[in-house]
Design a protein around this nucleic acid. Structure first.
Length: 461
DNA sequence: TTTTGAGTTGTTCGA
DNA sequence: GTCGAACAACTCAAA
């Protein structure tokens, strides 16, 4: 009996429960569908990463006696056609929890025997919940519960040695795109990065992760995004690193990284239970903020020309490499929302259009957190001052110099706020777009107004 | 049902 | 220069 393994965002052979389930009944046909609707929404650099990952996966499958079949078209039509072609009976796919994926899969399951297998996160989004069965909306409580459910040892499925596949299935070609710098795609690279991170950086993660000029973070996000590395594998490595740690600090560092991975799972769960976050504020009382949405300022933010060096460095790193340091993401996002008072969804979209790791749940969760519209509300007084953030997390200005070369010759003392000393650098804005103090006051008023409006509407109901 | 404690990532000010 | 306290009010989680 033949089953189709419909690959979506699980481009790996290790810890691969979907492939495992599909091959339990006999032959497996590994399939990736180039869905024009999805590809249209996927920017070129994420497509490049995906296609390269597919080529790597095809090579890994080849070593095990199988070939990767590529088909272009609407998933429902492609699957129906292929089932008829091959006499396959069932389609196995890793369950994807985004609103779009769930709608698509529900639709397809009406015509096709689609068997969704959990594998994207450690626990199914329904598995971690409060005593009354409702989902958590506060991270700390979620994480406590999640951690308590986590076993000391997470069993991971080994990669299959051999895959039996029906012969003679035609495949469409993969589009050729120019290669990406910095992030070679594929499972082997994801595994190698994980190993390297656990051997050298995880022990100092707690105090290096925020330093934007250093490689203190794992840089695994693109691999996790496409399932070239499973979240379970990363979590298992974090647990093991904690157990092997030889100092209290190293143990705390490993625990800290584990907690970052928990955020990823938390946001998958939030989007699963509260799909409205995809289009608007989680907190309904903040859904009618009167944004300024100045297009010129938005353009300056996108291009890295706001006049705030650390924000510009962050935005240029994104544009040039398709990746941004986590701390830089918060600073740049905070600047857009809290200083320019531009709708966080504009920023969310720009990140999705440029990040290789662009993931609906993680990106949305991060932006809503920054905007204060999300699950864990930021206290109103915790507004980033980008200059102080720069001085704190890029103390020698290396990050700024790397990405904003026109400022490279400024001394450390000036590099994060040259205008404060009256220094003007040719080719760089003489002043930031807005004054920090006035801007955050303006934002506070806008948020207050939105809340007041909401409670007045509520009292009239 | 009521109560209590707690809440990712900051900044400022005064001692 | 360093340090601790103050900065709202509210919602959630759990007892």
């Amino acid at each position: 009996m033949t089953s189709i393994w419909w690959i979506r965002r699980d481009l790996r052979l290790h810890d691969q429960p979907t492939l495992h389930a599909a091959s339990a009944n006999g032959d497996v046909l590994p399939l990736f569908i180039l869905d024009p609707f999805l590809l249209n929404k996927t920017p070129a650099r994420r497509q490049t990463f995906l296609f390269e990952g597919l080529r790597r996966l095809a090579a890994d499958l080849m070593k095990r006696g199988a070939t990767l079949v590529i088909r272009r078209g609407n998933p429902g039509e492609v699957l129906t056609q292929l089932l008829a072609e091959t006499n396959a009976t069932a389609v196995y796919a890793e369950e994807d929890y985004t609103p779009y994926a769930r709608r698509r899969d529900r639709e397809i399951a009406r015509a096709v025997d689609l068997r969704l297998i959990h594998g994207q996160s450690v626990f199914h989004p329904r598995a971690v919940c409060k005593a009354d069965g409702t989902p958590y909306v506060v991270f700390a409580a979620y994480a406590r519960s999640w951690r308590s459910l986590l076993p000391e040892h997470l069993p991971l499925l080994p990669a299959p040695v051999k895959i039996d596949m029906p012969p003679g299935i035609a495949s469409d070609p993969l589009p050729e795109l120019p290669p990406l710098n910095g992030f070679p795609a594929g499972e082997a690279e994801g595994q190698a990065r994980l190993t390297r991170f656990c051997e050298s950086h995880i022990g100092s993660y707690a105090d290096q992760r925020d330093r934007m000029a250093l490689e203190g973070t794992s840089t695994l996000s693109p691999y996790l995004r496409f399932g070239m590395l499973s979240l379970r594998t990363a979590v298992a490595a974090a647990i093991e690193a904690g157990q092997l740690a030889t100092s209290a600090f190293a143990r705390q560092s490993a625990e800290k990284w584990l907690s970052e991975l928990t955020w990823r799972e938390f946001y998958i769960q939030v989007m699963f239970h509260f799909p409205h976050v995809k289009t608007g504020a989680f907190q309904k009382q903040l859904s009618s903020i009167h944004w300024r949405n100045d297009r010129t300022e938005f353009q300056a933010w996108k291009e890295g020309c706001t006049g705030v060096p650390v924000v510009d460095a962050a935005m240029r790193q994104l544009k040039q490499t398709g990746w941004m340091h986590n701390r830089a993401r918060m600073i740049a996002a905070s600047y857009l929302v809290k200083e320019l008072l531009i709708d966080w969804r504009w920023g969310e979209r720009w990140f999705m259009d440029n990040l290789i790791d662009g993931d609906p749940a993680a990106n949305n969760g991060g932006w809503q957190w920054t905007a204060g519209t999300g699950t864990d509300a930021v206290p109103y007084f915790r507004i980033f001052n980008p200059v102080l953030q720069g001085r704190k997390f890029d103390p020698h200005g290396e990050y700024v110099r790397r990405w904003v070369p026109e400022l490279a010759l400024l001394p450390d003392k000036l590099i994060h706020a040259p205008w404060e000393q009256g220094v003007v650098v040719p080719g760089y804005p003489a002043h930031p777009l807005v004054d920090h103090k006035q801007a955050i006051e303006r934002t506070r008023r806008a948020y207050e107004t939105a809340k007041r409006y909401y409670s007045s509407m509520e009292s009239h109901e």
